[in-house]
Design a protein around this nucleic acid. Structure first.
Lengths: 338, 338
DNA sequence: TCATATTATGCAAGCGATTGCATAAGTATT
DNA sequence: AATACTTATGCAATCGCTTGCATAATATGA
């Protein structure tokens, strides 16, 4: 049978209240009693019951994660698991548990959020932005339930979020290409309803504009998806336009490594290799010797860490909490096998 | 303020016990009352408090995952996140939550297991086998705490586990190569203290032996690690031995896709491409046109699903529960770009 | 109609902690 | 030594739900 606080109390000849106060190191208990009780706790191998504690404290000391990403993405893009490790690390530091629920069904994320909130099994929620999360955000706002978002949401008023400066990152990576002498640079965007898509496009546009380079409508592919297929599709279009006389770009800025991989694959198929490609997430990608690939490491684990920090800050009612964190991204030159 | 069972009871003009019994659909309550109470529940938007429930039921309806894998592996090998989605799916079906904790420190996994067990915050634990898990297993066995293991542990008596038939899988993949005409086949193993390493080696050995092919000591690399480095290192050795006159193998059976990737990279460096390579896990790997790569898809999500099934079965005291599941693995021919 | 069996509901004691308030013990002040 | 003031501890209610047992209500049978 499990040892309870009462067993300890009895063994130490004090009341349960005293034991409770010893555990929380309350200043109202004398050192002498503390010592004695601590010894008994040690001897009996007592450990407070987290659930009873939660009930009494009206706080579960748990945060919930909602993963409603498609399995394919979840599995191939290390972003999520990296973010999860970051979240877990900060949570552990603060004595919080982390729950997650994966669901493939559309709208399932809302169901999970509702369940989390209503059952009281978590004190707060971390969302990964995605097209369907807005419903979640609305719901959580309305419920006045603590949450934070990885990725800048549409409406940021009153929302805690963490993200990279996607404008800046794309600006830099584009600029990086320009410095290398590229002038004709294509762009592949993400889903239209993601802020990240807009920001990355604007960053690309700004860098091009600053240097006085024009943006070729035929080389900008907006409203895409963060997938290999989209990358391949766009590159195929570029290549077939080239067959019909259009000038080939010398570089392509994509919004995701999966896209970039698609682009590279399309190039390989057509035996084209002198186009520099950039992506986001620093996924493991094997490069041919004559390929040039640059990725932006978004520092996913740090994003997770900060999201947890914001959320737990909010839960514990920390004053002057920042409303968001911008996590620095890093440009990574991926080396081909010589 | 949150609505409690008492609010419902009051509003419906019944006692809390009745409401509780309506929720659990007890046959002791008349249909008439059930209807009435349900209506009130609906109207008030009542949702039972999971924590209070847990306390009363002495069960948290939560399972804990211990991830003590190195960050590098966790991130690059989709195995873990896939297994996690499988676990989450079965858990959700059964009304269980899933908690996870990531820790990088050596031995941290034991700490987490101890915390999980003592605090009563989970009803059971799923372990991913790894060299340090034996301590965890010992601890959990001693505590008589429900757990299941992904990967066959050393001592299986009284342990619930799921795994592929690694012997069989490696036998098949080796056989597959032999059928294609390969005779001189190298083997790369995993860490010595993993059962999986032994099984895979035995599978390879058996297939070779059955066909009467000898096993060249210089082509079997045991006591390795599931890493790219190890793969590269072994292949480099093979290649330099070749420079000194040794015959090159025509195929290499590895125990992990990361190893296989290392092998491929070493080959690419040396401009060797006519060696067939096999791996495990069906990781995304980009292939050169003239490379041949076969992977074994271990069906990680199914492994997770089954691990959850065993664990929850154990928690709920299901009779005649199997002690383990063998999940079928599938040989996947990875296509090079066209 | 009354005794008896059956069914539906409520009471109250848990589950294992926390905490405001009351009180006992100890210390200081005069 | 009596009073006032701290300081240390305990009592008992509370958190929200579950469940064994008692009991009230209803149905059955003679």
């Amino acid at each position: 049978m499990k040892i309870t606080i009462n067993d300890v109390a009895r063994a130490a000849g004090v009341s349960a209240s005293t034991v409770s106060r010893v555990i929380s190191d309350s200043p109202k208990i004398s050192e002498k009693t503390k010592e004695r009780v601590r010894k008994v706790i040690e001897e009996l191998g007592y450990h407070p019951n987290a659930i009873a504690r939660s009930l009494a404290n009206q706080s579960s000391k748990t945060i919930g994660l909602i993963l409603n990403t498609e399995a394919e993405t979840l599995v191939r893009n290390p972003f999520f698991i990296q973010a999860m490790t970051g979240i877990s690390q900060y949570a552990q530091e603060q004595g919080y548990n982390v729950m997650f629920a994966y669901n493939k069904s559309e709208d399932g994320d809302l169901d999970i959020a509702v369940r989390y909130v209503n059952s009281g099994s978590v004190d707060g929620i971390i969302l990964f932005t995605s097209r369907t999360n807005d419903k979640c955000i609305d719901f959580l706002m309305k419920s006045n339930f603590p949450f934070s978002v990885i990725g800048r949401p549409d409406h940021t008023e009153g929302v805690l979020w963490v993200d990279n400066d996607n404008f800046q990152a794309t600006y830099q990576v584009t600029n990086h290409l320009i410095m290398k002498g590229h002038k004709r640079i294509a762009f592949l965007g993400g889903p239209r309803d993601h802020n990240v898509s807009r920001d990355r496009f604007e960053g690309y546009k700004a860098a091009m504009t600053v240097h006085g380079y024009s943006i070729d409508r035929n080389l900008t592919f907006l409203e895409g998806s963060f997938s290999e297929e989209f990358g391949s599709k766009c590159m195929s279009e570029i290549l077939s336009a080239h067959k019909n006389g259009a000038e080939l770009p010398t570089a392509i800025v994509t919004s995701d490594d999966m896209q970039a991989l698609g682009v590279l694959k399309a190039m390989r198929k057509m035996n084209v290799s002198d186009v520099a490609v950039t992506g986001f997430n620093n996924m493991p990608v094997s490069l041919y010797k004559n390929e040039s690939f640059t990725s932006v490491d978004v520092n996913a684990s740090q994003l997770g860490f900060c999201a947890a920090k914001l959320l737990i800050g909010r839960i514990e009612g920390i004053a002057d909490l920042p409303a968001h964190y911008i996590v620095p991204a890093e440009i990574v030159e991926v080396e081909p096998l010589y």
